[in-house]
């Protein structure tokens, strides 16, 4: 598992992919920081984190598109699958590799937090770090889920292009649950659809609410997609 993770991280940073991901992440988060906080004169970062949901929805699939699809296309899966590593180890290694790149990129949010906090402190006010960590936890959990979805879609195809477009599609669909629920008149049904909505759950984090319920939702949804990935790879052996 560690060997796979190390290789994945190395692959992200020997190709432009890792840097491009980080650059786009930093660029957009900086833009939204300027729009929501700096120019608006506010220290509440909720809006920045909310916008980053949509950015990640599109850039994380690009990060994960090659994870399994490319292994299959280049036949390197014949090496990993015939080495003494479990399927769980292989999928987890790939997940952790992508997650590492995402986590490194997301650290910039902490820098924003620190600079805002310094600016607020100079004005004699207090930066709400509790709120900030609530936002940040949401961002990390959302990243984990999108990466798991991306890896799952990547395991379904040999083409990186299809993997990227497919996972962007799934990510958008996952957000659409919200919009659909607002059109459903039956309250129970609307409630069920809402409870599946990733964006709704993420929004609670951006309001600074760290709830265990939502954390469990993200972790279990990510685990579900990783589990499905393992099943897909396993099934291919029997095909």
């Amino acid at each position: 598992m560690l060997a796979i993770m190390k290789r994945e991280i190395r692959a992200y940073y020997t190709t432009p992919l890792g840097y491009v991901f980080t650059a786009v992440f930093w660029g957009f988060s900086g833009l939204f920081l300027w729009l929501n906080c700096l120019s608006a004169g506010s220290s509440a970062m909720g809006g920045v984190f909310q916008m980053m949901f949509f950015v990640n929805m599109i850039i994380i699939p690009v990060l994960t598109m090659r994870t399994i699809a490319d292994d299959k296309r280049q036949k390197t899966d014949q090496l990993t699958l015939t080495s003494p590593v479990s399927l769980f180890g292989i999928v987890m290694g790939k997940f952790l590799g992508a997650f590492f790149v995402f986590l490194c990129s997301s650290l910039v949010m902490i820098i924003y937090g620190c600079s805002l906090s310094a600016a607020v402190a100079s004005a004699g006010e207090r930066f709400e770090w509790e709120m900030f960590w609530g936002h940040y936890a949401g961002l990390v959990l959302m990243g984990a889920l999108f990466i798991a979805i991306g890896i799952f879609i990547s395991s379904l195809t040999e083409s990186q292009m299809i993997a990227a477009i497919g996972s962007i599609g799934v990510n958008i669909a996952v957000c659409l649950f919200d919009i659909i629920s607002s059109y459903v008149s039956n309250e129970t049904l609307a409630g069920i659809i809402n409870s599946l909505s990733v964006f709704y759950k993420y929004n609670e984090f951006t309001q600074g609410i760290f709830s265990l319920k939502n954390t469990v939702f993200f972790v279990s949804a990510a685990s579900l997609f990783l589990f499905l990935t393992i099943r897909v790879i396993e099934r291919r052996r029997y095909a």
Partner: peptide
């Protein structure tokens, strides 16, 4: 050693 050697071209 499979038919197509399982190499990572970027390494």
């Amino acid at each position: 050693l499979p038919e197509i050697p399982p190499l990572y071209p970027d390494m």
